[in-house]
Design a protein around this nucleic acid. Structure first.
Lengths: 118, 118
DNA sequence: CCAATTGTTCAATAACTTTTGAACTAAGGA
DNA sequence: TCCTTAGTTCAAAAGTTATTGAACAATTGG
């Protein structure tokens, strides 16, 4: 019950860049980065699209080697493959996340820019 | 007789990533980076595709804000927009070029890996 | 002026990507 | 067991991107 992931040396630069060149997927990666260490499941991204559509985008990210999905019960716990990406393409993920960090054109997972508690 | 270019603040991260997510265009950018300072014209990329096809890919790069094309006579002198990209997305171009630098899966402009003089 | 060089544009086609809804599987709880 | 939850798969439709060849424009040199 494990999903297919490329190993580190199979991660391809053009494929990673192509996969990140989609606003929905970039928003997923930005959100994963903002919660690094906390594994998220698919339903936490439902702001970004339908269940089916997210399944598609999350599969693209996984197949490109950007994310890892671990099957736990009926959930898939999704994490960024930061170590593998840093090893393969040093600095790339950080610069992408920094650039995405303040892009108002990207969709938001929370539906708003900033968490504003009372 | 000037071609349309986005200004710096109009350069979009997902569009840049999407445009770089193509092996031909990544090879163009890698070659431009390897000859930085030297403006190149389109015909120097003919190893990578037909004249028509290169016109298409070079237009994509220019419209995304990755390259600048200056019209000089019948030529277009093409350069990387390094300053603009660095200002907008610090570190991104460098990490992409470094990652592309040794990717044997990318097409080569010279048709060979390394310049081997006598 | 004529021809060559450089590159663009256009229309067609092929190939791929995204999005959708309906049907499905698999695990977990009552 | 039955129902719910979580997510996938499939097929269709819609949209986008890449590639090609033929025709075109603009500049340069003879």
């Amino acid at each position: 019950m494990t999903l297919p992931h490329p190993n580190t040396d199979q991660i391809s630069l053009p494929i990673v860049l192509g996969v990140l060149g989609d606003p929905t997927r970039l928003a997923i990666v930005r959100y994963l980065a903002s919660k690094e260490g906390v594994p998220l499941n698919c339903s936490q991204f439902l702001d970004l699209g339908s269940k089916t559509n997210l399944s598609y985008h999350l599969a693209k990210l996984r197949e490109a080697g950007v994310t890892r999905a671990e099957v736990v019960g009926t959930s898939r716990l999704i994490t960024l493959r930061r170590d593998d990406l840093d090893a393969r393409f040093p600095g790339l993920l950080d610069s992408v996340i920094a650039a995405a960090g303040d892009d108002p054109a990207l969709p938001m997972v929370g539906g708003h820019d900033i968490e504003v508690p009372a």
